[in-house]
Nucleic acid binder design. Structure first.
Lengths: 356, 356
DNA sequence: GGGGCGAAGGTAAACGTTTACCTCTAGGGT
DNA sequence: ACCCTAGAGGTAAACGTTTACCTTCGCCCC
């Protein structure tokens, strides 16, 4: 806090009542103030460096003009962009962001939400690890705080609707499959962060698997990693990547992971996409600076942030709004995917695909 | 806001006075409450789902337990880490973050600081484009809000001290120079974002140039870019990179830029480090996933965030604290630097360095 | 047995706003 | 000449806390 000059000081200095000052400053009331008085008040405000106290105001108006935003991590550029989008929209509407990052930790998620509640945020924008088992969400609903989930793919029907802004992650998985199938891949694998920490990964996996099944292909091998490079290595081992029996294409649940995978492949002298194709999800900018450039499914992250902010704000104004907004994703070309390798002569050690 | 049950409701429900509730909940007052009353109150709190109003509390205590944090951008992982560090420390101390990103825009910087002031943050943590001409800083000082600059290298002596948490950016520049000189480089260039937007870039440049001068080498060519890849290309053109008259080493003012530069070099078939060495600053994680891995000067970003938070908090408690904390940086090995290329036969078109 | 003391808890006055309601003045319509 | 209205501005009551200051009571010590 600071050299608090209050509205009372201003009123005194300008020789008017506090009500007048308040009315003028918020442009309220039919009975407006005369221009002379206005001038005096403004002069006083200027002279005293008056700044209305948010606390006093909030107490009376019962709104804080704060929006809580909870994201798992800022290391992933996707979340950084979401944040930028939210920030931008919120600022324009005169709202401020109470931000916290959860590091994918359920404990911290709850803690963050509690904090939002304690601070009486007017609205909340969240990405949680698992909407269907996040107690915090219930708290927000109980407190009737307009909230929206970003990126999450809530599929728990028992819970009454909390709006979502996301892409169709199952379709993302399908699109990846479609792309790889079109290039002749028949043996694929998926590498993902812990599914328990990301319902979007789960949805992507589901779409991926279904598309493969529909195409008459066997289920892909799937491997979870803890996102430390050592684990990436063992994941590649367990999938037999690079060997004749290994997959010809790797679907990574996000770009950061895909980049780590490409690094490890390079270390092993597995050529991308010569031996193995790699594709990620997110469309982060740095992907196209890699060599080979990373193919990915791009999401309009920044726009998602803006949409999310717009959504909670209109909810705040009491406007009914679409429960869920599905934004379009897109395929981002990249050198990291290519036609399936014809990896072995016909008399291969892999009897399952003699015609490949 | 929400189904506001107030402290009065709790008091009533528990059959005690509000003062008792308040005292119990904050563990204040020598005259403690008896265990039976405590139990009743807690039961009431539980039953009613009571949550103290931050507004009411702030109004009375004159502190918000909010810390403002202003950073230029979250796209740079360095800032994301700072944020994580601040977030972590603040949370542990029971503070919440009011966050905003300025996109390196002076207007938005000021706007953000005003917002902090309007919300009466207890403290502020900032990275600004230019400390010596940021009006916002003066406002913070005038309002006596404990503040700290992170990453900035304030060098305006006329201004009374605002504490800094940073690395010695001039030394960073020197260390880069030293490293490159040791590898035999004699012709170097620096590529940086707009210097006007980053005093740390300016300091790095200064150190770099001074070290070269002290080593008897000519001043490096320096080129500012607007951080769009098209500009990186023209920067490389203007520096003659890849030609016999061009530099054998490029010092990039941050890793993201270095990565973009490496990308463009690759496109031009300029070998790194064979033809040109590249070194960045920041030590972002993704640098070591590139090929070649990026050499860099690492900064302890997360720690800087934690230190910054600790610093403003102790300032808040009235403890005097070191005006400036210089943290150690470190050289991060990377494949992107190597010995200076002996780029042309003795009868070169470059008469300036016949002996090289 | 009385004075003193400390523990337990109540009373009420802030903190800085906003806003419903009131007062006053001037002007206009009949 | 009168009433009505509208504009301009003042008065004071909230909003939900915290906390200084009381009151009460039981206990101990002389």
């Amino acid at each position: 806090m600071a050299g608090s000059t209050t509205i009372k000081d201003v009123a005194q200095h300008a020789g008017v009542s506090v009500a007048t000052v308040s009315r003028l400053l918020n442009g309220k009331g039919k009975g407006r103030v005369s221009t002379e008085v206005a001038a005096k008040v403004h002069a006083a405000v200027e002279a005293l460096g008056y700044r209305p106290s948010a606390a006093g105001r909030s107490l009376k108006t019962r709104q804080t003009r704060n929006i809580g935003i909870l994201i798992p991590s800022l290391s992933n550029p996707v979340f950084a962009e979401i944040f930028a989008g939210v920030n931008d929209h919120a600022r324009r509407e005169g709202y401020t962001l109470l931000a916290t990052v959860s590091e994918y930790d359920r404990e911290l998620e709850l803690d963050g939400i509690q904090t939002f509640l304690n601070h009486q945020v007017d609205a909340a924008i969240l990405t949680v690890t698992n909407p269907s088992q996040c107690e915090g969400l219930a708290l927000l609903k109980a407190a009737k705080v307009p909230s929206v989930l970003v990126f999450n793919q809530e599929n728990d029907a028992t819970r009454d609707a909390m709006p979502l802004v996301t892409v169709d992650n199952e379709q993302v998985g399908r699109d990846v499959a479609k792309k790889l199938i079109a290039l002749g891949h028949k043996s694929m694998a998926m590498i993902a962060g812990h599914f328990s920490a990301s319902d979007r990964s789960r949805a992507r996996r589901m779409g991926f698997e279904r598309a493969l099944t529909e195409a008459g292909l066997p289920n892909p091998r799937v491997c979870e990693v803890d996102f430390v490079s050592a684990e990436v290595a063992s994941a590649l081992d367990s999938l037999n990547v690079g060997s004749a029996t290994g997959p010809t294409a790797l679907f990574c649940s996000n770009d950061l992971l895909a980049i780590a995978v490409m690094k490890e492949l390079r270390r092993r002298s597995v050529r991308v996409p010569g031996d193995v194709s790699v594709i990620g999800v997110d469309g982060i900018a740095i992907g196209s600076l890699m060599s080979p450039t990373l193919a990915s499914i791009t999401q309009p992250s920044r726009e998602m942030g803006e949409k999310a902010a717009a959504l909670v704000l209109s909810q705040l104004k009491g406007e009914a709004c679409a429960a869920t907004q599905l934004l379009a994703h897109d395929y981002q070309e990249g050198e990291s995917v290519g036609p399936a390798a014809t990896k072995s002569p016909p008399s291969s050690s892999d009897p399952l695909q003699p015609k490949a």
